[in-house]
C-alpha cells in the first residue's frame, strides 16, 4: 500500500486511485483529457490490432501457424456470433465486432494488473516526493469517457444503418408513427408526440446502457480490488489483526481476480453482441 494511504487511511488511498491523470487542453472543464485512459487505450488498441494484423498479413489457407490458428479461432468465434444475429453483409459489422471485443477485452484485462504496480513504478522513476501527486488509472474502461466514446460511436452507426435501411424520410417518419400506429389523421397527430418520446427513449437508452454497463462493472471491480488492498494493510491495528487481514486479503484477492477473468471476457462479449444486436435491429426493416 502506498505512502498516502499510510498518511490518510483507506479513504485517501481509494480517492487517490480513483483520480485520473487529468491534463487541461482548454479553458472550460470539458476541455481536458484523461491522459492515462488515452495512453493505455491507444497502446492496447494498437497492440491488439497490430497483433492481428501481423497474423493476417502472413495468413495462409494451408496449415496455419499456432499464432494464426489462435487468431483465426477468435475471428471465427466473432464471425459466428455476428452471423447468428446479423443477416446481411458482414463486411463491416464483423470486423467492428472484432475490434470491440479485442479492445474492450484488453482494456478490461488491465484490471488484473497489481493495483499499486504503476504507483510503485512512478515512485521508482519520479521519486517518492513526486509520486504523491502522480495519478494514473490503468483501466480505460473504468472511465466513462472510454465507454461512452464507444457506445456513442455505436449509436451513430445504429442511426446510420437505420437511415440506410429506411431512407432519411422513412426514418424520420417512423420516429413519429411507431410504435403506436394510428389510422385517422387526428389520431396520427395525437400519437406523434408520445411516439417520438418513446423512440427518443429507446434510441438514447441503448448507448447509455451499453456504456454504463461496462463502466459500472469495471469501476466496481477496481473498487473491490482497492477494498481488498485495504484489508491487506491493517498493520496499524497490531501484528495479529494485520497478519490475519493480510492472509484473508491474499485469498480474497486471488478469488476476486479469478472471478474477474470471467467478468473481463463477459463484458467484452456483451458489449460486442449488443452492438451487433442494435445494428441488426436498425438494419432490419420493420
Amino acid at each position: 500500500m502506498s505512502a498516502e494511504a499510510k498518511a490518510g487511511g483507506l479513504t485517501e488511498y481509494i480517492t487517490h486511485h480513483l483520480t485520473h491523470h487529468n491534463v487541461a487542453v482548454g479553458e472550460s472543464s470539458f476541455w481536458s483529457v484523461h491522459l492515462d485512459s488515452l495512453l493505455v487505450s491507444f497502446a492496447l488498441g494498437l497492440l491488439m490490432v497490430f497483433w492481428f494484423w501481423s497474423k493476417a498479413r502472413k495468413a495462409t489457407s494451408g496449415v496455419p501457424s499456432r499464432g494464426q490458428a489462435f487468431v483465426e479461432l477468435v475471428v471465427e468465434f466473432v464471425d459466428g456470433q455476428v452471423k447468428d444475429v446479423f443477416h446481411g453483409d458482414r463486411k463491416f459489422i464483423a470486423p467492428l465486432a472484432l475490434t470491440i471485443f479485442l479492445w474492450v477485452f484488453a482494456m478490461n484485462a488491465m484490471d488484473l494488473l497489481p493495483l499499486d504496480l504503476i504507483g510503485y513504478g512512478a515512485r521508482v522513476v519520479l521519486g517518492a516526493e513526486h509520486a504523491e501527486h502522480f495519478y494514473f488509472r490503468a483501466v480505460p474502461t473504468a472511465d466513462v469517457n472510454t465507454t461512452f466514446a464507444m457506445s456513442i460511436t455505436v449509436f451513430f452507426l445504429v442511426i446510420f444503418y437505420s437511415i440506410k435501411a429506411k431512407g432519411g424520410l422513412g426514418f424520420t417518419k417512423e420516429l413519429f408513427t411507431a410504435p403506436f400506429h394510428a389510422h385517422g389523421a387526428g389520431a396520427k397527430i395525437a400519437l406523434a408526440i408520445p411516439n417520438f418520446f418513446l423512440n427518443l427513449v429507446e434510441y438514447l437508452s441503448k448507448p447509455v446502457s451499453l456504456a454504463m454497463r461496462l463502466f459500472g462493472n469495471m469501476y466496481a471491480g477496481e473498487l473491490v480490488f482497492m477494498l481488498i488492498a485495504g484489508l491487506m494493510s491493517m498493520w496499524s491495528l497490531g501484528a495479529v489483526a494485520g497478519s490475519l487481514g493480510f492472509g484473508i486479503g491474499v485469498l480474497v484477492n486471488a478469488g476476486w481476480s479469478i472471478f474477474h477473468i470471467l467478468i473481463i471476457g463477459l463484458q467484452a462479449f456483451i458489449f460486442m453482441v449488443l452492438t451487433v444486436v442494435y445494428i441488426s435491429m436498425a438494419h432490419e426493416h420493420h
Partner: peptide
C-alpha cells in the same frame, strides 16, 4: 470531457 472525443477518434 474531451477524453471522449479522443477515444471516439481512436475507436
Amino acid at each position: 470531457n474531451a477524453t471522449l472525443l479522443g477515444q471516439m477518434i481512436a475507436f
